[in-house]
Design a protein around this nucleic acid. Structure first.
Lengths: 242, 242
DNA sequence: CGCTTCGTTGAAACACGTCAATAAGCGTGG
DNA sequence: CCACGCTTATTGACGTGTTTCAACGAAGCG
């Protein structure tokens, strides 16, 4: 894979992709300049506001997308309305479920999200022709599987306090892809209390109480409900039993 | 993929693989007879009893395996000993985590398990050479991801009663790969009450109480603690909120 | 036959959910 | 600019589902 990348001359790459690749390391990294140029012709970039349905339940999936910025939540609902967020996706994740036209999973923007979208058929064809693209896809899928299984421990075996700490830790370590700061991490929560509750399998009241407790214990600082500062990531991780 | 299969003449296939492929539809189906013959030379078949560690936490993974029969549980533990089963694997699933030598996930046989194992390096090489094998691997991984996310709803949003019903439904529909029987499904539970509790994020006492309730309500019949009969799968599914 | 493991059942404790009231943030319009 | 409604979040009192603790029964095994 690394060798493959090496012979990509930036000058041959579409300008839009250059800017994108410079910041992230998404799937397009495994495409040749030719493929990239080709894909770029049929790609469409768009920006959607928070709360937009990107993949509606059981609706035919017509597009795949790369997330350029923002956070997307993947949700499932039971027939009586109970909802569970089964995954969060950050830039530069690939959004879509190859080899299956319908999905039982909904995708919705949690924040303002910028996307680079492609018609499904074109990408499916490209996957067939490009083993390295499929390889990249397999790696992302394996990572998502690891993350999903890790979260299952949180859902099944952690207390409410540990769940909320786990969530904050997850965001603190994922929201800013490049930052490796150990101290003084600060960010805007991409999710409302209701979303956090759906992610953790709790009620909004319990989430609120545990957030208050973390704040009173000095583990986090919270301003305007959404802006969070974590003075000591290790301390937060400890609260999350990580 | 289907076309690829069509030109495999059974006469060219190693005898051991023939018997295996006849019953299941595992990964080896995407290999050519040549590759199969080659792989068969380095494959070792073995049978392990229930409770055998197959992949120990953070230990280097030296082998991949196909599950020929039995059930394997994938577990994760927190530092204080709390345990969560994050997946069950049935024949003919592939066991192992490609592209990563260490895993945070343990694999342990839940029942007697028959395996067909291969040295890691040989399979890794084969994956590089055979796009169709990688394709098959991607598909299993996507399926496992779907299953994991489906189970997250069970863990996060279902009551104890629904969780136990969901578990019984999962087993009833997975334990016997070929059976499509709607009525009178009968099977041996592959997991102890402790395992079931670890899978559902409950205690063994709660599992026991809910099993008793399902039995008293006539949703399932239970003999000798392990043998379960489900007279009406739809009724069980309803209890599971599926 | 005793020993251990596995499963069931009951009573009490508690973590989290439910219900309800209040406050804070935010856009809209008079 | 303030009034108004709406959504989002906090906090309290109370109820309940699940856990905890404990005792007991059943099954497997030397």
């Amino acid at each position: 894979m690394t060798e493959k990348r090496r012979d990509i001359h930036n000058s041959e790459m579409p300008a839009l992709c250059q800017a994108c690749e410079a910041r992230h390391h998404g799937m397009c990294g495994s495409l040749t300049p030719d493929e990239l140029t080709q894909l770029n012709k049929i790609a469409s970039r768009k920006e959607v506001s928070a709360g937009t349905a990107l993949v509606a339940d059981s609706e035919a999936v017509t597009h795949y997308s790369n997330i350029l910025s923002g956070v997307v939540k993947l949700t499932k609902i039971l027939s009586d309305g109970r909802q569970q967020i089964v995954g969060l996706q950050f830039a530069p994740d690939f959004l879509g479920r190859p080899f299956k036209t319908s999905s039982e999973t909904n995708a919705e923007s949690a924040t303002t999200v910028r996307l680079c979208s492609f018609p499904r058929s074109a990408v499916d064809r490209m996957i067939e022709d490009s083993p390295s693209l499929e390889h990249r896809l397999l790696q992302q899928t394996l990572n998502e599987l690891d993350e999903a299984r890790g979260w299952m421990v949180t859902l099944g075996r952690k207390t409410a306090a540990e769940k909320v700490a786990s969530f904050l830790y997850l965001i603190a370590t994922h929201i800013n892809p490049e930052s490796d700061a150990v101290d003084g991490v600060s960010f805007e929560l991409p999710l409302t209390r209701a979303d956090i509750a759906d992610f953790l399998g709790l009620t909004i009241e319990t989430v609120s109480r545990q957030m208050t407790k973390l704040r009173k214990d000095g583990v986090v600082e919270i301003e305007n409900n959404r802006h969070v500062t974590v003075p000591d990531l290790e301390r937060l991780a400890h609260r999350a039993s990580i």
